[in-house]
């Protein structure tokens, strides 16, 4: 691989690529990425399940192969706790069309995590979905490490 090409990117590794050219904006974007994973209203392992589902919806194979952003168990989907199931069902619709989200989907998340948990989930889904999109497309648009431009 030469200096002008990038390896396949993931939502985690695209931050370093943006940082090489993005200056203050990239630093602020990375701070938000870190904050959505650290907020206390929705456990990070649940967000990790959502990240995987969004990656599947995008067909992002490298994203699925990337290291988990938070530890998750091996529980089959049918046996997931109610909170994880509610968040995943919300993410499933969010990933396809946010206009199709229903009050019932939102209420199921709020029943487990409260209003703040619902807002934290929506914010995180937006940031994670966005980083997956950037990881998919920026490899073709930005140079690899060591290149200048």
């Amino acid at each position: 691989m030469d200096a002008t090409t990038l390896p396949p990117l993931s939502s985690a590794s695209v931050g370093a690529v943006l940082a090489r050219s993005g200056g203050e904006l990239a630093r602020c974007h990375d701070s938000l990425w870190a904050a959505v994973w650290r907020q206390p209203h929705l456990p990070a392992p649940i967000l990790e399940l959502c990240r995987r589902r969004l990656a599947q919806l995008h067909g992002a194979t490298h994203e699925l192969a990337a290291s988990p952003a938070a530890p998750v168990g091996t529980t089959p989907d049918d046996d997931l706790p109610a909170g994880a199931r509610a968040a995943l069902e919300f993410a499933e619709v969010y990933g396809q069309d946010p206009q199709a989200i229903t009050d019932e989907l939102a209420a199921a998340v709020k029943a487990q995590f409260g209003d703040a948990g619902l807002v934290a989930l929506i914010e995180a889904l937006g940031v994670i979905d966005g980083r997956i999109r950037l990881a998919l497309m920026l490899g073709a648009l930005l140079p690899g490490e060591g290149a200048h431009g």
């Binding site: 943006l18 050219s21 993005g22 904006l25 648009l141 930005l142 431009g149």
Partner: peptide, 11 residues
């Protein structure tokens, strides 16, 4: 420029 592409992407 690469900076402009990165900034448009982040925006």
């Amino acid at each position: 420029t690469t900076e402009e592409i990165a900034h448009m992407a982040i925006g």
